[in-house]
Design a protein around this nucleic acid. Structure first.
Lengths: 338, 338
DNA sequence: GTGAAAGCGCTAACAT
DNA sequence: ATGTTAGCGCTTTCAC
């Protein structure tokens, strides 16, 4: 027998109470540290019984009684999307720090699936919902379960009547594009971004425009593709087909940038010698690209913390838009030396 | 008013029953499709009431009563690990297909955290546990909640007394190493793998040895590093420092391979001209590397399906080890033409 | 400081 | 075919 076998059937509070010679109420007081005081000596007896029996409060019963589960739902497009994976991890960590668990679901970028998720996740008894996805940024926002605290995550714009936290995407985009303009002297910066339906594109696109305007440069070509690596690859054809090839490209996600890099390489176009490239997100993968990708790093940890703070706020999340700044991460794809 | 507002407080089965003029039992029968039959006409009335009231069964109450939640726990090292992200997605999809939700938690590769997770996740009332991680492959396996159906995922070896499903890692490793040997005629293939503590390394290492032996080639140098990109990068120093540089490298995870690629590039060593490189996992990122990475692709979807099947098996998962084959994905890092 | 007891909302015997 | 009802295990008010 390698280890003390725990009982097959889990002990109940009543059993603990019997063993400790107290009432179930006292067990509850001890386990939850309230709402009534317990004599230190009694408490010790209860704790012993808890240990001996390996007692764990039944989550479902507690949830039924308290009306809360300690689980928050997270709706994202795809976990396999590298940025979303990093954001998920940040959310999980932040939740764990608060004693919360997270129930994640991917919509596969399908608005219908997402809409359904917004209905079904609450059914799983989550206390709150974190929504980080395309639809969340639509106007008007999709109907979520009424009375279910919801915060929109990764939202670059306010979400009508909802609580939202997101990156200062315009600032971030300005940061990288201005680097191209000011440091490397580019005058023609193409934009590779997502389908125009999603407002998310807007903020990054806006930053690109602002940077260009500030430097009296005309906007380069705009290519709209999927938010992933294949999207970026597909953009290359359009990029290269234009009348005058841009000298630099701003892809509004690192995944797209990595796809562009791949496509450019396949086409025999060198980065950064022939065309400079910058991304947006700051995923780890970007550091390992060839050449390493210059990008704007999103404050995923801070965003996750802020979102959970908002969710846990007594009284529920409050309408508004909390925006967090990005950092410029200079690597080689922009033309800077290693 | 853009949309029909649902009631702030959620309706209960009793309210639905009252509105439909039936008893709560009938509501339950209709909602759950059993265990007793209901007259079609009555059922229709109930469904109307359900719709009108926006009734959703209270998950906690149902869980308390039925003793199951419809939630499965997933323990992984890190979601941000690209392979784990793809595996998570496969698990989520497979779970969704079965009407299950997944509660994921990352251990950050810390055995202590993992051990704790194995204790706390069950507390969140999961019906079963999927464990895909370092500790899970230790011998003996860590104690999970007794009576909680558990299957070890991504396990290359049987897990003592438990139900495990995993890749045929030895076969997969053989596949890629043999490609190096047979197609490209390499004689010296280095191994970049994980810390030797994890048994997981063993299966891949074994495949490498077997392939080498089958071709009468001596094992090249072995370097043990972390299972991630930084680990791979770190391996390069050792790889290049040795007395005779290997002509090819097998990294036992794509993340490591990508790190090796990065390190090699920084050192001015060309892949595949100066040294060939193959990975293991088949993550999407591998296709976008420069050069695109030749690798063994893990059957993540099949693994996820098999794991959930095992978990849902009436009577619980049964001890054993189900092994799934890998595919060779030939790209350019091995020296094959584009 | 502690105990008794009333439910939370649902399901499934068991009755009718 | 439908209704009645007894809990699932927990928390917490109210009484002592």
């Amino acid at each position: 027998m390698p280890q003390t076998e725990e009982p097959a059937r889990r002990a109940t509070a009543a059993e603990v109470a019997r063993r400790a010679g107290v009432s179930p109420a006292v067990v509850s007081y001890v386990v939850n540290g309230g709402p009534r005081n317990v004599a230190p000596e009694t408490a010790a007896r209860v704790r012993d019984a808890v240990r001996d029996l390996g007692y764990r409060p039944n989550r479902a019963a507690r949830a039924l009684r308290r009306g809360s589960t300690g689980i928050v739902g997270l709706v994202i497009p795809r976990v396999a999307n590298p940025f979303m994976a990093e954001l998920s991890e940040a959310v999980q960590d932040a939740a764990a720090r608060r004693g919360l668990a997270v129930l994640a679901a991917g919509s596969g970028n399908e608005p219908d699936v997402e809409r359904e998720l917004l209905q079904t996740l609450p059914r799983h008894g989550v206390d709150g919902l974190l929504v980080a996805t395309v639809l969340g940024h639509a106007d008007p926002p999709p109907g979520t379960a009424p009375g279910l605290p919801t915060v929109y995550l990764n939202a670059p714009f306010p979400v009508g009547g909802r609580c939202a936290v997101g990156p200062d995407a315009t600032q971030g985009a300005r940061l990288v594009v201005e680097h191209l303009l000011a440091v490397h002297g580019h005058r023609s910066v193409a934009l590779v971004t997502g389908e125009s339906g999603a407002r998310r594109a807007g903020a990054r696109e806006l930053g690109w425009q602002q940077a260009l305007a500030a430097h009296d440069a005309a906007p380069g070509p705009v290519v709209r593709v999927g938010w992933d690596r294949p999207g970026g690859s597909a953009a290359v054809v359009a990029l290269l087909a234009g009348p005058q090839r841009p000298t630099a490209v701003f892809a509004t996600s690192d995944a797209q940038a990595l796809g562009v890099l791949h496509g450019l390489r396949a086409a025999g176009v060198r980065v950064p010698e022939d065309v400079a490239l910058v991304g947006f997100d700051g995923i780890e993968e970007a550091a390992y690209a060839a050449p390493p990708l210059t990008t704007a790093h999103q404050p995923v940890t801070a965003m996750a913390e802020a979102a959970l703070d908002a969710l846990e706020r007594p009284g529920g999340p409050v309408e508004g838009h909390q925006v967090l700044g990005l950092d410029l991460v200079v690597r080689e794809s922009c033309g800077c030396p290693a």
